[in-house]
Simulated scan of single mutants.
Amino acid sequence: MRLEPDLSRVPGVLGEISRRRWAEVVDLEPPSFPPTSQPRPSLLEALQAPGLSLIAEVKRKSPSQGDIAQLDPAQVAQAYAKGGARAISVLTEPHYFAGSNADLLAVRQAVGLPILRKDFTVHPRQLEEARALGASAVLLIVAVLGELTGAYLELAQQQGLDALVEVHDEAELEVALSSRAQILGINNRNLVDLKIDRTTAPRLGRLARERGFGGALVAESGYSHPAELEELHSLFDAVLIGTSLARSQDWQAAVQKLTFRS
C-alpha cells in the first residue's frame, strides 16, 4: 500500500505544517540513536484508570498562541507527574511549536509516565523514530492522513506504540471508528482556522459512544479551569491540556487543580 498521504488536499494552517513536515522527514534515514532502554508504559492503560486522566503537555509555542513559555522539558514533566498527571504530551515539531526530539528524550529520562509524541505524522519513518525516542504513543490526525489512518495505526501497533487518533468532525469520526482506533482524541480546535468550540468534544464524544466506541475518549483544546472539565467526567476518559499548564510557571500546582479522581 502506498503510504504517502495526499497533503495537497489539507487546507489552512494544518496543511502548511503537514507539507513542511513531509519535506523534512521524507528522506529521513533510520533513527541514528539507539532505542531508549527506559520503560515504555502504555498510554491506553493509563487513560483507562478510574477518574478523568490528565495528559499534560510540554509546549513552548503554537500557531494560535505564539510564544507560550520558555521551559525545561524535564523539569516541567517532573512537576506534571508530581501534580498527578497520568501521561505527558511532548511537542517535537520544531518550527511552529519549538519542539524537538531532544525534548522527548529528556522527558523520557525524567519521568516514568506514558509519553505521547505530539507531532504531525505524515510518514511511516516517524513511527520508527517515535519508538526509538521512547514514546509510548503517537498522534495520528485523520484530517492529515485521511483513509490512510488505519494503515498508520496498524504500523504504529507493529512498533509497539499506542496511537491517539484525532478527529474534529463527524466525517473524520467515521474514519477513526472504521480504523479500529483504541484511543480517540476529539479536538475542539479547528486546525484549519485555529478557532475553538468546546461543544465539539461532547457532541462527537456522545456520537462515538452511541456508535459503540468502547476505547478511551480524550477531549482536547480550550480547557484551563476545573469547571470546564465537569461536563467531561461521565463521558470522557481523559483531557489533554497544554497552553494553560505550560504558562502557569507553577506546573505542579496547576496540574493538581485540574486533576480529578473518582
Rank of each mutant, 00 (worst) to 15 (best):
H123W: 00
A46N: 07
D119P: 05
T121E: 03
L43I: 09
R21H: 08
S100H: 03
S42Y: 03
A106R: 13
L71S: 12
A46I: 13
I68T: 05
R117T: 03
V90L: 14
S53R: 10
V90G: 02
L54C: 07
A46C: 10
A77D: 01
T36N: 04
Q75H: 13
I55K: 11
A56T: 10
S89L: 08
S62R: 03
L116N: 01
S53L: 06
T36Y: 01
G15I: 12
R117L: 01
E93H: 13
P30T: 08
V111W: 02
R117N: 04
S32G: 07
A49R: 15
A77S: 10
Q109I: 00
Q48N: 13
S62E: 04
K59D: 05
L28G: 01
L44Q: 12
A87H: 06
A77R: 07
A81F: 01
Q65R: 14
I115M: 04
A106G: 02
D27K: 05
A23F: 05
S53K: 12
S100I: 08
S100D: 07
H95K: 11
S42N: 08
A87L: 05
A102D: 13
R60P: 06
F120H: 00
Q75T: 14
K118I: 07
P39Y: 09
Q70N: 13
P31Y: 06
A85N: 08
Q48W: 02
S64A: 15
S64G: 09
Q109N: 11
A87W: 06
Q65H: 14
P39A: 03
P39F: 03
G83P: 00
L91A: 03
P73C: 10
F120Y: 04
Q109W: 00
Y80C: 09
A81C: 13
S37E: 15
D27W: 01
A74I: 09
P63I: 04
R108Y: 09
L47I: 11
I68D: 02
S42M: 08
S62M: 08
G99W: 05
R21Q: 12
L54G: 06
K59M: 11
T36S: 15
R60L: 05
Y96D: 09
Q65L: 08
D27N: 15
D72S: 15
I17G: 01
Q70K: 12
I115K: 05
R21K: 14
K61G: 10
A85K: 10
A69Q: 12
G83F: 07
I17V: 15
R19C: 07
V25C: 11
V111K: 01
A77N: 09
P50C: 05
I68P: 00
A81S: 14
P94F: 01
P94C: 03
P50F: 12
P94I: 02
Q38C: 04
E93A: 05
Y96V: 01
